[in-house]
Nucleic acid binder design. Structure first.
Lengths: 135, 135
DNA sequence: CTTGAGTCTGTAGTGGCTACAGACGGTACA
DNA sequence: TGTACCGTCTGTAGCCACTACAGACTCAAG
């Protein structure tokens, strides 16, 4: 399988595949006579795993850890659970941060009376919350 | 006001203040005899605005646009409203992306039977969804 | 035999900072 | 007066996870 086929089979950019190889996430495949990368099923499986984990928001470091764990089938699953759970809390934290942003943005936008910038409530709300001379 | 005071008054890193100056977001201030940056109230206000907008998730480019708008008080507020509204939809999109991730992560983690990696449902769920030989 | 698509390596850019290194300024205390 | 120490200065490099080239090649179709 050539890199373009692998890439399209996994909905990945060709450049990204090469990047994963460079950072050691995907093993370097054999080469054809013309020096083209030649991938097998194992590569396809591994890249699919990586993509799916990335889609779920795992960092490349986390993916690396997960991949390392899959190599030893005897290890307890706990380490995997831990990585996933840590990531879940991270995602939940991001959601609540964004939800707070969203609520505040709605208030800000809701105040807009569509006049001029001079009496724009959005600008005003964004504007300086200056503490009176902390010095 | 020295850079450290400005920074702590706005909960910003000193490096970030200098970075904002470098990219033209914050005007270069006067210097003292010893070549220290010397800020006035206008800088404090501008940086407060920037920080608040950043806290609400606006990109530096959006902040730049907002700042440009605040300079002409006669302009209609519509442009401001547009930037903010566009940003709000962006935030809402991110929230729903993350919520989808969260839901899927919960399913994945919920499947964990705490055995060994060999029969780990997390790894399995993450694992290759290989379409049978697309060639 | 040419054309065009795919692939190769290597480097640089993105956003928004953050982290140094190495030199200089300013102040508090001995 | 020395000295210790903090803050500040400039400039450069690093972070994440790619993405976008440039310039050279391989290969299959017409």
């Amino acid at each position: 399988m050539k890199i373009g086929e692998l890439a399209s089979a996994t909905a990945t950019n060709v450049e990204t595949v090469r990047y994963y190889e460079k950072i050691g996430l995907l093993p370097a495949p054999a080469r054809t006579n013309g020096n083209y990368r030649s991938y097998g099923v194992a590569h396809l499986q591994r890249l699919s795993f990586i993509r799916r984990a990335r889609d779920l928001g795992f960092s490349l470091d986390a993916v690396r850890d997960l991949l390392a764990l899959t190599d030893d089938r005897e290890k307890p699953c706990q380490a995997v659970d831990e990585i996933a759970s840590r990531h879940l809390s991270e995602v939940e934290r991001k959601i609540s941060d964004l939800a707070a942003m969203r609520d505040e943005l709605r208030v800000v936008i809701g105040n807009c009376r569509h006049g001029t910038v001079g009496d724009c409530k959005i600008i005003e709300t964004l504007g300086p919350r200056v503490r009176p001379d902390p010095k």
